[in-house]
Simulated scan of single mutants.
Amino acid sequence: MTLYDYVCEPELDIRLGPRPYLHPVRTLGGTVVTDALCFDHPWHLGASLTVADVNGWNLWGGRTFVRGEGYVWREDHGRIRHLSPHELVWQDGNGRTLLTEHRRIAATPASEGWELSFSYALTAPRTQAVSLGSPATNGRTGGAGYGGFFWRCPPGRAVSSAGNGSDDPALTLTVDDSYRLVFSGLAGDDRWFVRTEEYIGVCAALAYTDPLVIPPGDTLRRDIRVLITDVH
């Protein structure tokens, strides 16, 4: 059994924020623990890395939150392209490079279940800084600080060990008493963005309250780990 499928170059409408993503991801027992192209948020794509505001470009997909206006459809969508097994490029809607990324994904056995490692390094161009933002940094209230490594689960009943906005070292999500996901890897001012009511999702958010700026030529590094286990 394959533990996960990696979709490198999905053929998607630009409004869905095309990007590589993992789906389906499975437990050792075969339970699927990701969802993609969801009926409520079709731009939610399994487990993926994406940000809602990259120097003003929406790479998350869907509507853009505009201060004083709310969510509106704009022609501001970009995409993330897979160049080689470890190299990607983040582009604006005109194909210009916003960021380059080095990514490494690995699956390793664990005492219970298995662990997914998703490591990434985002490098800004030498000529300009890159600002990473979220609906929260653009004025939305209610803790909508999403943007970063995001995991969308299938519909179900979920219990989280930490609330939205927590900076706990690890966050445990138990779904339907069927499977458990343990997320870790926050750094800097990162926070957990968590949803268990409208939908089930967890994001290691890079700009939960304030924009995160990568200076010209600098690199932002994160190593996100997810322990995936069946609940017996």
Rank of each mutant, 00 (worst) to 15 (best):
V32Q: 10
P20Y: 03
R67L: 10
E11D: 00
L16G: 09
T27K: 01
G29N: 12
V66G: 10
G17H: 02
D92G: 09
V32D: 10
R81T: 13
V25S: 02
W57M: 07
V32C: 12
G61H: 01
W57L: 06
L3A: 08
D53G: 04
H41R: 12
R81M: 01
C8K: 11
G17T: 09
L83N: 15
L59T: 12
E11H: 03
Q91H: 00
P24D: 13
D13K: 05
C38P: 00
L16A: 12
S48M: 13
G29C: 11
V72C: 04
C8A: 13
G78P: 01
G30E: 05
G29M: 07
L3V: 08
T31M: 14
D35H: 06
D76T: 15
D53K: 02
G29I: 07
I14N: 08
V33P: 01
L88P: 05
R19M: 06
A36R: 08
L59A: 10
L12N: 01
L16M: 12
R63W: 10
L22F: 04
A47I: 14
H82E: 05
L45R: 09
G56T: 10
Y4C: 10
A52Y: 15
D35N: 13
E75W: 00
N55W: 08
G56C: 04
R63N: 14
T27V: 04
H77T: 15
W57T: 15
L3K: 00
L37S: 06
S48C: 14
R67P: 04
V72L: 02
P10D: 00
W57P: 03
Y6P: 02
E69M: 13
G56M: 05
I80P: 00
R74F: 03
V89A: 15
G29F: 03
E75H: 01
P10Y: 03
H41E: 12
V54I: 13
R63M: 14
G17D: 01
V54E: 05
S48N: 13
A52T: 13
C8N: 09
H44N: 12
V25T: 05
V51E: 10
D40T: 11
F39C: 04
D13T: 12
P10V: 08
R63P: 09
Q91R: 00
P42G: 08
W43G: 07
R15G: 11
G17E: 04
G78F: 02
H86W: 11
V89C: 10
F39P: 02
R74Q: 11
P20A: 02
L59N: 04
Y21Q: 02
R67I: 05
N58C: 09
V54G: 05
R26E: 10
C8P: 07
G29A: 14
R19I: 11
L49H: 06
V54K: 01
R63Q: 14
P10L: 01
L3R: 02
V7A: 03
G56L: 04
F65C: 08
Y71C: 06
W60M: 02
W73I: 13
V51Y: 06
A47S: 11
E11L: 00
